[in-house]
């Protein structure tokens, strides 16, 4: 049996502490330990982006991040995007523009789009298409996803990507040192 290390991660504004195997992927930590099953696994090879979450405010593919690498960090998942009953402008725009069909790629697509709009608040259609290159959708042909992101970019109620950032948790171990412990 593998040894475990402690992690302390702020997930959607709530500090969570667990003992984990060093090899545990962040996506499996979120899904299997925290029950946050909105983050999906589609390819295992960092191609499809269904597992995209925000790590310290930036989009990462959580199938290629170990949970221990998130020790001391803030993670935002799709479950943390809405403000109570009020949808995030991207969620609203995906709904309104039929930007999803089976919905499996959607959480990752929304998280990637949120990151894109943070970096480029007024993207052209081409910039949206290239900005979402890391996320695959088999259902929509991307057309309504692009439309949704363009609309969200110009949404009047658009504010920030996620809920207000919480206090950064103190790392239980020194960040990054947990691997191989």
């Amino acid at each position: 049996m593998s040894s475990t290390v402690g992690v302390r991660i702020s997930v959607n504004g709530e500090v969570r502490e667990h003992e984990v195997e060093p090899r545990l992927l962040l996506v499996h930590y979120l899904r299997d330990r925290l029950g946050l099953t909105g983050t999906h696994v589609g390819c295992d090879t960092t191609n499809c982006g269904a597992c995209t979450v925000h790590l310290n405010g930036e989009a990462v593919k959580s199938c290629t991040v170990f949970a221990v690498q998130a020790d001391g960090a803030e993670v935002t998942t799709i479950e943390g995007m809405a403000d109570g009953a009020e949808l995030h402008p991207l969620q609203e725009a995906f709904w309104k523009n039929h930007g999803l069909q089976c919905g499996y790629c959607t959480p990752g697509m929304i998280m990637a789009a949120a990151d894109l709009l943070q970096r480029n608040p007024d993207p052209s259609e081409s910039e949206v298409r290239h900005g979402l290159e890391g996320n695959l959708c088999r259902c929509t042909g991307y057309q309504n996803i692009v439309r949704a992101v363009m609309e969200a970019a110009h949404s009047p109620q658009r504010t920030t990507v996620g809920p207000p950032p919480p206090e950064k948790p103190e790392a239980r171990e020194e960040v990054g040192k947990g691997v191989g412990a």
């Binding site: 899904r31 099953t37 909105g38 799709i78 995007m81 709904w95 919905g103 959607t106």
Partner: peptide, 21 residues
């Protein structure tokens, strides 16, 4: 008409086979 299926899917509340414990 906007889809009835979307609210859970856009908020991470879908229920795919691998999500069922």
């Amino acid at each position: 008409i906007r889809r009835k299926e979307d609210p859970p899917l856009i908020t991470g509340k879908g229920r795919y086979t691998d999500d069922i414990v």
